[in-house]
Amino acid sequence: MAEEPLVVEGKRVLGVVPGVPPVGDRKIPDEQESVMVWPHLLVRHAVAALAVLLLVLIVAIFFDAPLREIANPAVTPNPEKAPWYFAGLQELLSHYHPLVAGILVPGTVVLGAMALPYLDRNPDRHGRTRRVAVATFTIFLVAWIILTIIGFAFRGPDWGWVWPWNAWYGEL
């Protein structure tokens, strides 16, 4: 078996001359330069995936999935809570007619999100010309997050207002 070839930055080299490069020893990478996915991106993705899995595996040690009493069509629990990702929808439902809160609003949001790239024809990706798009998206996002948090943590029996530090009714 021949000697292992010496490889520097993915290229075989015949030899290495010691010394300092004339422009200094720190190389500033070019952001637009293309690099090999293997290993540069794969390593990062692997670490990211492992970190997320580790988080799940640790959280699962400490927090058990809930299991309430067996389903009973004769008793509606009070409060009746949807899963947390629908808590915003449920909060809307307590204020508006189901056709509006349950169908029109979520339907418009989903269809609007799908149509977004065709409505927003501004080719600019950064900066001030995107103010309208960014503001619209942010308003929807923040409104949705607030509704979700209210529905999830601030609602108690009869869908009345409770402070989560007084009584906790959130369900995961």
């Binding site: 509606t76 009070n78 439902l93 029996p157 869908w159």
Partner: peptide
């Protein structure tokens, strides 16, 4: 008729009151 919760009879007020959405 709203969203399918069970509507209990309230003895004190003598009416049907749904706890889900009121």
């Amino acid at each position: 008729p709203h969203l399918g919760c069970r509507v209990p009879w309230c003895e004190s007020s003598q009416e049907f009151e749904c706890p889900c959405h009121g």
